[in-house]
Design a protein around this nucleic acid. Structure first.
Lengths: 131, 131
DNA sequence: CCTTGACCTTCCAGTCACGGGAACCCTTAT
DNA sequence: ATAAGGGTTCCCGTGACTGGAAGGTCAAGG
């Protein structure tokens, strides 16, 4: 398969697939004309990466997960540890966003949104320095 | 005030303050020796930016908010519109993260985490391409 | 045989919001 | 004279791609 077919089948853009080769994630063979040639295995691995990325795993986690995926001697504990780390990161991000949401939604609710200049949102942002 | 004092008072790193000048957000005067010189007004504006950034507003939103902050003729409607746009973006991000969290927490719960290779997490990631 | 169009290739630049570090200048105190 | 602790500019790196330029390859049609 050429990169276009693999892109269609995996759902990843060709650009992304080349990038993954660049950083050593999935390295296809080359045909005589220099085109990338992918087999079923590479296709599976690219789809695996796409799914992992869609769950928000950073690339380095994906690299580790892919290595475990390839290794029949892996322990599920290693996989679970990576997933738990990522889950903790997700929790952190949700907490940060939830805090912003709470503050901002209060401010938005308090703002008249008319043509006068008075605005609780700006008043909140204009907090005293050093206070 | 020199950049160090302003950094302390505003809570922003000096690097960030220089960056904000680079992109035209807050442009201080210069003293004879080339040092940046900040007044109270600039300090307030930098603190304003720090607060806006801590609520997750992207820089271009901050630029617009700062312009409104400076403009006594502003309408609160403009401020509210920016805030609502950002709030929508936060909602989008929370929804995406919540989806990841749901999937991942199920998978983590289902994984034994022992020294055997069988792993529901990897099985989920190894979804069939094109299916 | 030539051309067109759809592929493919590499490489470079840009994204966002800074942070690290080098190399150098200014001021004050010892 | 020198050392410490400010300040300055400039360039590179981050994460995970995306866009675009310049050019090679291949199959079909006139």
């Amino acid at each position: 398969m050429n990169i276009g077919e693999v892109a269609k089948a995996s759902g990843l853009p060709a650009k992304t697939i080349r990038y993954y080769e660049d950083i050593g994630l999935v390295e296809p063979a080359r045909s005589a004309n220099g085109y990338r040639v992918y087999g079923e295995q590479e296709l599976h691995q690219l789809a695996f990466l796409g799914r992992a990325r869609s769950l928000g795993f950073p690339i380095e986690d994906c690299r580790a997960l892919l290595a475990l995926y390839r290794d029949p001697q892996r322990s599920s504990a290693e996989v679970k540890s990576i997933a738990r780390g990522h889950l903790a990161e997700i929790d952190r991000k949700i907490a940060a966003l939830t805090g912003m949401h709470r503050t901002l939604s209060h401010l938005v609710a308090a703002c008249a949104g008319d043509d006068r200049p008075d605005c609780p949102i700006l008043e909140d942002l204009a907090v005293e320095p050093r206070g």
